[in-house]
Amino acid sequence: MLNKLYYPAVFSVEGEDGFGIRFPNFPDCAVSGDSMETGYERASRVLGEILEGLETAGDMIPKPSMPQEIALQKGEFVVVIEFDMLEYKKRTRSKAVKKTLSIPSWLNEEATAVGVNFSQILQDGLLRVLNEKSC
């Protein structure tokens, strides 16, 4: 899965400051917010839950609709929700897992002597590779 995805959400005004939000790509999903900021944050969180659920189940992630092709009712407007799967996973799946790996003994001795944090180096390297692969 690509790290960054952009899905259109249809916002509709509810009351003085509130918004109802629906996703054309996910018809069974709707959220609301009492401000634009809250609505956007909730929409992003729900989008993450949907996409993670699809990914976990091995289901296909639908291609986002084109905003200009969405039929709108009076009082509705489209907001594109940016979703970063890598950032979402960092926030929601931060449980550490143990990995066993092998390096040459001389490299281990040199790195240990200067206080290298092996776990941090591996995490940084993996993130760099994942970011390069998603571009």
Rank of each mutant, 00 (worst) to 15 (best):
G125Q: 11
K95F: 13
P8W: 07
A30W: 04
G18A: 09
A96R: 13
K98D: 03
I70C: 08
V80H: 02
W106K: 13
L126T: 12
S12A: 03
V129Y: 12
L54T: 01
Y7I: 00
V46D: 03
D124A: 13
A30H: 03
P24I: 00
G125E: 05
R91L: 13
M60T: 15
F118V: 02
Q68M: 08
G115K: 05
K98S: 15
D34C: 09
R42I: 00
S94L: 04
Y7V: 00
E82V: 01
T112G: 13
Y6G: 00
Q123W: 01
E109Q: 13
K89A: 13
P67N: 12
E16I: 04
M1W: 03
I70D: 09
P67K: 11
S12W: 00
S94A: 12
V78W: 11
D84Q: 10
A9M: 06
L107C: 11
G20I: 00
V79P: 02
E82Y: 06
R42A: 02
D124Q: 09
N3S: 07
V31D: 00
A30I: 00
L122H: 05
V114Q: 12
E110R: 14
I103M: 11
Y6E: 05
F19A: 00
Q68W: 07
Y40Q: 08
K89M: 15
I50H: 02
E14T: 01
A9R: 01
S105N: 12
M36N: 07
T92P: 03
L127V: 04
V97D: 06
P27T: 01
V114Y: 06
P27W: 06
R91I: 03
N3Y: 08
T112H: 13
G115N: 09
D28A: 14
L126E: 04
V97G: 05
V46M: 12
L5M: 07
P67G: 05
E55Y: 12
P24G: 08
L72N: 04
K90D: 14
R93V: 02
E37N: 05
C135N: 10
K98Y: 06
E37L: 10
Q123V: 08
G15R: 04
F26E: 01
S12V: 00
G58F: 14
A9Q: 04
K133L: 12
K95I: 02
N117Y: 12
W106G: 00
C135F: 05
D34T: 07
K90Q: 15
G48F: 06
V46Y: 07
